[in-house]
Design a protein around this nucleic acid. Sequence first.
DNA 1: CTGAATCCAGATGGATACTG
DNA 2: CAGTATCCATCTGGATTCAG
Lengths: 111, 111
Amino acid sequence: MYALNGKWKISIISSICCFGKRRFSDILNDVEGISNRMLSKELKELEINQLVKRTILDTQPITVQYELTEHGNTLQTIISNLAEWGVVHRNKITGKKVESIETSCNEKIDV
Amino acid sequence: MYALNGKWKISIISSICCFGKRRFSDILNDVEGISNRMLSKELKELEINQLVKRTILDTQPITVQYELTEHGNTLQTIISNLAEWGVVHRNKITGKKVESIETSCNEKIDV
DNA sequence: CTGAATCCAGATGGATACTG
DNA sequence: CAGTATCCATCTGGATTCAG
């Protein structure tokens, strides 16, 4: 089941989960290299899949806040596992030893 | 870290892990809808990433056997988790209740 | 049987400009 | 600020054919 396709979904989820709530432009900065066009599209898909919740704040100018739904949170464990495996894998492939594994929310996830 | 991109990798790994060892044409049958071109390509990538091991059997005509490497096996847990989450997710989205979750190796994984 | 080669349609995604 | 629209290059993957 890949409601997770697209190049950025995991990074986006990580960004949001890391802060709890996050604005559009914040995510735009967090996720290196993504364009607003893509971010908009991916967020929309995540919203349709009920993984993130979108809230329009009545500020001036308007801001929009994104947060993980309860359901989205159930993904965190899996993403952590993936990230952890990814680290081990990278080291395996590049032939380095695994010194330490950190999978805090702040860690950048390579895609 | 996506050494897992491509439409079929997870299905292929599932097929192999399910039987331990699997020939090219067997996988071709297991994974519904894949073409030999894709299977060939995806297997090659998996091999490069040291997730599967390729063995040429000296039969007539030649057959090739694929099996998961030790490293590939470490992915099984994660894939199971993903599959399990996928089932829950599907039911969530379609609004059905989750009756039971089976994540045996025989289960088909929807991609 | 395994798998490489070619052809080609459609999806993906970057850059940029524009709107409310 | 948040998003949409357009243009366009590249990537993906299916069908088919060929080769060892």
